[in-house]
Amino acid sequence: MAFQGLEISVTPVARPDGPPPPLSGANLRRGLEASARLATRYGLLLGFLGVWQVASTAGWLNPSVFPPLDRIVTTLAEGILSGALLDDIAISLQRAGIAFAASVAVGVPLGLAMGQMPVVERALDPILQLFRQTSALALYPVFILLLGLGETSKVFVIFWASLFPILLATIGGVKQVDGKLLEMARSFGAGRLTLFGRVILPAAVPAIFVGLRLSGTTALLLLIAAEMIGANKGLGFQVMNAQFNFRTDLMFAAIFLLAFIGLALNAALVAAQARFCRWSEPR
């Protein structure tokens, strides 16, 4: 079969010859699109805060339970500038930070080892499941008996609770490494160490990040609970104490601070995840 003699004619597509539309128009449209995106993302939140402010100042909400936002912000600024809240922030960050770091330092290496040793994993799994299902807060009194009422028991209960998400995620990450990739690496002569460093560890990184985020959330959750139960400093204590003294502005200031710390931690982890796990995003 030959294509000679076959004529294909293509009618040129009519193209407007006029000058491109004025730039300002395009810019305006792009600006509008961006603000529309912002509005859909933060509109509800702003609306919520606005309703709060108006309802509180107009007296539709009991202002002694829901103080107006401007008062909360003022209290927050004063507390930080005078240094009164800084101590609480510092001690809370220290407790959660040490516990979170310890859970990562224990959970990631342990998970990497357990994920590669099916026998150990099988032997330990029932215990892990039992521990995981037992609320860390239920064990807090036990930790207090063992470690006293001081910092150690608080840090330990946070560590305990945030250990399991990172540990289980890491084990899962190692176990789901593609066996075909392992075989490929082995066929090139990779030994155990190379296999671990060049295949198993990189493959487990996305799962480890999921674990990090879960553990971070858990650490903050447990921090607040532990500080509410038995502390005389810290943001969790301030929430409880302010409520007790009917300083609801201070209470909300502490709550907002906690929310902000949680958001900042999550944003940092998401940014790191985007940096290290670009390859695993669905395309």
Binding site: K180, S187, G189, R198, V205
Partner: peptide, 16 residues
């Protein structure tokens, strides 16, 4: 062994 290399049905590339 180092004198042999395999090409599989799937590319088996390291995705990262």
């Amino acid at each position: 062994g180092t004198e042999r290399a395999i090409i599989y049905q799937e590319p088996r590339l390291l995705p990262w």
